[in-house]
Design a binder for these strands. Structure first.
Lengths: 238, 238
DNA sequence: AAACGCAAAAATGGATCCAATAACTAGATA
DNA sequence: TATCTAGTTATTGGATCCATTTTTGCGTTT
């Protein structure tokens, strides 16, 4: 399979998100091109694209560096997602959902209920839930009919997941994590109710707060220890 | 003067914003490169950067096209700016302003008062006001200490000004426009007061609404005729 | 032993070259 | 006359080449 231009971007992005390229790694065009088996041209374009996405930073004269994202930055990015998706939910509610959007959201809600019906989530459930969740949020943004929201979000889309393990699902605490997803899914129900009934302000408020569900235990005030652990791990590179 | 890479980006961007490249124009790499006296490489990179900024759209197989921005899109983008700068003002207020930020904002407020002291704005006043205004907003964003806000805004930074005349200062109605600036600057005073005193929610609300001041007469409910005129002009291309 | 300087190596930015693909045009045929 | 087809043209994507700048490392000198 020959590597194509966008392929290089996605390959590098995936390597960064997977932690294969550790935060702080220096990347130069020529070695990267050789490593991927392509020429410098697509690599050059990929570096600039990933810089735009906030995953790389330019070191003038020494190539690029994989950005190390601090916990504070992740929290900030989640906050931004919150206000943007909140705006989307409000505009969707004020504008009114199309029948297609309404029915697909309903289907997704049912699907989420079903996934969460069992006692505890397993690996497969997690995967299914996250797909459902992504689609749910995408529809809300679509339904706002405001392309600027999508554009603003794209810049921060991958950032919260850059420091891979910080937002990882904690498989050692399945029951706690399961509760988190149950709560998040309740919010899905509530924002759906608000949007269907044209309650723009409620829809916005719920969605805005809902973003914090992504953070999981990071900002849980009951678990300062865990916060500390992550902070240490991260502050060592920042 | 030799054209450099970022030069090509800024040159093309300026040409688009100035209307020199009309909305809907098709742009190909080779003609553009020849026109600017550079090779295809920097042009290729510039096209992708401007696509990221939302100023160009890709026509697969036929190069790029200068995006035509509808009034609805501009209003949507302003809405997005509102929630993002509102978030910035809130976080700045909650975090507390540094002394440097506080004093520079104070200076800018005084400067704005001075510019608006005369009866009516002239061309030079307008220029000075807009510089002051830009700096004021930049400081608010800086003071939030949330790089994700800056990143999200960068995507929509130029978009509201792409359809050049839609947001242009209406020189035939100086007194009306002057009142608009006076109102906007009052909001600057209020958001400063809120931020200095740590009133996060007020700061957010004021800033969020303040974004609409940019729109000027576009969304003025008292002037549906003017709105119609702009809509027509724009809808013809959309 | 430390610091300065020079040279070599590596990196980027820009230009050109080659190949593949998609769009246009003109001509032939139904 | 309309449509299908084939050939030509234009355009992009990828690879390589050249020049300039910066870093880096080693050697010399103080």
């Amino acid at each position: 399979m020959q590597k194509t231009q966008s392929n290089v971007v996605t390959t590098l992005r995936q390597m960064i998100l997977d932690g294969e390229l550790a935060a702080g790694s220096r990347l130069a065009e020529i070695p990267t091109a050789e490593k991927l088996g392509v020429s410098r041209t697509p690599v050059r374009i990929a570096f600039r694209a990933l810089e735009q996405e906030g995953l790389l930073t330019k070191l003038p004269g020494r190539g690029y560096e994989v950005r190390s994202v601090s916990v504070a930055e992740i929290i900030g990015a989640v906050e931004v997602r919150g206000v943007l998706e909140g705006l989307a939910a409000r505009q969707a509610a004020e504008r009114g959902l199309s029948e297609a959007h309404r029915s697909e959201l309903q289907t997704l809600l049912d699907l989420g209920d079903e996934i969460l019906a069992g006692d505890q989530l397993n690996e497969a459930d997690l995967e299914r839930y996250q797909q459902m969740n992504k689609r749910f949020h995408d529809i809300v943004i679509e339904a706002a009919h405001n392309p600027a929201i999508q554009a603003a979000l794209s810049r921060n889309e991958h950032l919260p997941f850059a420091s891979s393990s910080a937002l990882a699902f904690d498989k050692k605490q399945m029951s706690k994590e399961t509760k988190r997803f149950e709560f998040a899914h309740q919010q899905h129900h509530h924002v759906f109710y608000a949007m269907v009934n044209g309650f723009g302000s409620r829809a916005e408020g719920i969605m805005r707060e809902h973003a914090n569900a992504t953070l999981g235990y990071i900002n849980s005030p009951r678990n300062p220890d865990e916060l500390t652990v992550i902070s240490e791990r991260d502050s060592s590179r920042n």
